[in-house]
């Protein structure tokens, strides 16, 4: 019972279990192992972005450019493949491009000290615009050549994206929980001034998480290209808000200082379970109902988190007395 309020992720766990049980009871065909995996796999790129966003939101920042950076890397990847680059070269290029966008964001946030939302709002516009520029006038997607079939088979044909998202998540968890950088991130997030006085290099901390997130957006871009079998100029459009939603559902505090990678991943799982459950019901305009439910879930999960914190405080007080 204590676990309900001592474990940070309890609201999102309750949410996932609740959604699963409800759908399993009410929706025929819901419980089908591979079917569920297939549907969760559609959210692999979101999960990868969510790990980066967890770090950034944990440091009290925000990055709304991830969707556009994903799109930019996808397009660059596709262009490179179409021009005859090898899979490895093109992948490195895409990862590099994502990292560069992250470094640009990080530079303006950490060094020039602009507000993160301002910086990433402009890189959101700029990265999307430049993706259109690289793709060329009137090109909406660049089909991947046969040399990319390995990637397509791996990302579309197997559960490799899930595995990759899992690896990224474990990496993010290790970084946050077990490394000095992780401690710095949370220290910067909870009180930047105090962190500075305790000798933390705030600028370097911030810079590095935007770079990491840019790199992850590049990685998600390659996964997206593979899963779509083509490099789409509009790839990642609007991902930022759904990924941020998943992070917030997961219990990472928007004001920084408290972050959980596990929670964010469970947030993505909750969103994908919702998608599957509503999809199987066979509702017209199901996306609209999905959005409606997403809004309700976001609000409810934050309210649940407040209940949890209150209960934790009450119990702590009871123990003290």
């Amino acid at each position: 019972m204590r676990l309900l309020y001592t474990v940070k992720e309890s609201p999102v766990i309750v949410l996932c279990v609740g959604l699963f049980v409800c759908f399993a009871l009410w929706v025929p065909n819901f419980v089908d192992g591979f079917g569920i995996l297939d549907d969760v796999k559609q959210y692999a790129s979101y999960a990868i972005l969510a790990v980066g966003l967890t770090l950034i939101i944990g440091s009290a920042g925000i990055d709304i450019s991830v969707g556009s950076v994903l799109g930019f890397s996808t397009v660059l990847f596709g262009c490179a493949m179409a021009r005859g680059a090898g899979l490895l070269q093109a992948s490195l290029l895409a990862l590099f491009a994502g990292t560069v966008w992250g470094a640009i964001n990080g530079f303006f946030v950490a060094k020039i000290k602009l507000q993160p939302i301002v910086v990433t709002l402009s890189s959101m516009a700029a990265a999307r615009g430049l993706a259109y520029v690289i793709a060329g006038q009137g090109i909406s997607s660049i089909p991947l050549p046969a040399s990319a079939s390995g990637l397509v088979n791996m990302t579309y044909g197997s559960y490799a994206p899930l595995l990759l998202a899992l690896i990224v998540a474990v990496g993010g968890w290790l970084l946050l929980a077990k490394t000095p950088l992780g401690r710095y991130i949370l220290a910067v997030g909870s009180n930047e001034e105090a962190a500075r006085f305790s000798g933390i290099d705030v600028a370097a901390t911030k810079y590095s998480i935007y770079v990491i997130t840019g790199f992850l957006a590049g990685l998600a871009g390659i996964v997206t290209a593979g899963m779509m079998n083509t490099a789409i100029t509009d790839a990642g459009l609007g991902y930022e808000f759904e990924a941020i939603t998943a992070v917030l559902i997961g219990g990472t505090s928007i004001s920084g200082g408290e972050a959980t990678v596990l929670g964010s991943i469970l947030g993505v799982v909750a969103v994908s379970l919702l998608n599957r459950g509503l999809g199987l019901l066979g509702i017209n305009d199901l996306e609209l109902w999905r959005m409606l439910c997403l809004g309700v879930i976001l609000i409810v999960s934050v309210l649940l988190d407040q209940l949890r914190k209150r209960a934790a405080r009450i119990s702590a007080r009871a123990q003290a007395a």
Binding site: Q42, L237, N275, G279, N284, L286, E287
Partner: peptide, 22 residues
């Protein structure tokens, strides 16, 4: 059915996957 925002390629794939498992 269909995605709720324009040009949502992966959203559309997600919906199709969903119908397949249905």
């Amino acid at each position: 059915t269909g995605p709720a925002k324009g040009g949502d390629v992966s959203g559309q794939i997600r919906i199709i996957e969903n119908q397949i498992s249905r």
